[in-house]
Design a protein around this nucleic acid. Structure first.
Lengths: 206, 206
DNA sequence: GTCTATATACGGATAGAC
DNA sequence: GTCTATCCGTATATAGAC
């Protein structure tokens, strides 16, 4: 049996624990998850969890770090690219978030909860306010191409339209006669196309 | 001393516990809150909590019920009023949510977490799909006054723009050079005026 | 109704055999 | 590296005095 084959079939114990922890922590948050649950989900023994990662907290920090990265890294790269127009950047931000969230739908609620519980240095606003994107928008307002508006509100609009549906998803999908997972994905694909157009329209509103 | 005066000065013990529980549960969620914290916050003894509300869970259910009501009740009333135009309804939904959230900013995150952890019969989608508002929108699409679009996406846009800023607030306000509470409120007041206009603009997008 | 003291269970972490 | 058994602090809940 080749080494590659083994790697695919037999995830390392360490990796199995990480995978289980990611699933449970992002779904339920730190306090609601028991280390015993993680061990069971990973198919290993509780003692092994402490053998690999000294404590529940250490393990949590690893998962949190991953999530913050997925949540902010792509954004930061897009928004500082000096070669793209602001219109293109809007498309990229929306597309980036929707693609990411279709893969990791629990990330935003997880991150929001954690940031509120433990307000660390996130500096999302700083990243945005100092970005090249920001300069392009202000230039657009100066030339009159964009109606005068608070750029923070513009940014809020872009992320709200992209992210909120994933946060509210449990509500739309609760109860009978709700949309299926396939319908939800379809809806999000339509949003990926439409949000940039909707945002464009708001740029003309006085 | 009049009865009214007494009521104002001396909140009943039961009420003190509810108030403390509301504050802590909405801020941190069920698992992160200890009954001892609630007792301390309420300025009473731990045993009293169990004397009035048999258990932590019973107490939580009361708070959760309150929150669900504030979150959905106003919405349901607005959306089924047969005397207002759809334009007016959009204004009212936005205004209603922003006013409510300025008073209870922790509600959405609390409700979203809870619904995901324990998907009960919320039927938000049903309320919307069967509403008079819905009929008005479809009529508008038929006459061409509104560009053809998925009405679920329209609804998502209205609530996303109104609610998300409150969910993401910890992120914008984390770190240095962030906006103050006053600036945040000002921003939301501007959104209250502008969101209906922005939504109007999206209704013309093909 | 309100308190102090306590029963009981649970969850995180470790000891020690294999 | 992986397991079983167990320790120990903490959290919910109750008993019983006042």
């Amino acid at each position: 049996m080749s080494i590659l084959k083994r790697k695919k079939e037999e995830e390392s114990t360490e990796q199995k624990i990480i995978t289980a922890a990611r699933k449970l922590f992002t779904q339920k948050g730190f306090d609601a998850v028991k280390t015993r649950d993680i061990a069971e989900e990973a198919g290993i023994n509780l003692a092994l969890l402490n053998y690999y990662f000294r404590s529940k907290e250490k393990l949590f920090e690893i998962i949190m770090g991953e999530s913050l990265e997925t949540f902010f890294l792509g954004f930061s790269n897009i928004v500082n690219d000096e070669k793209t127009t602001y219109t293109k950047k809007i498309e990229q931000i929306v597309s980036n978030y929707i693609d990411m969230l279709l893969k990791s739908p629990d990330t935003p609620l997880f991150v929001m909860n954690q940031v509120r519980a433990n307000p660390k240095r996130i500096e999302a606003k700083k990243i945005f306010m100092n970005s090249y994107f920001m300069k392009q928008l202000q230039a657009g307002i100066k030339t009159g191409e964009i109606a005068p508006m608070n750029v923070v509100n513009l940014m809020l609009n872009i992320v709200s339209l992209s992210i909120f549906p994933f946060i509210g998803r449990p509500i739309f999908q609760a109860g009978e006669g709700s949309i299926t997972d396939e319908q939800f994905i379809e809806l999000m694909m339509e949003r990926k196309k439409m949000i940039p157009k909707w945002i464009e329209a708001t740029l003309k509103v006085k």
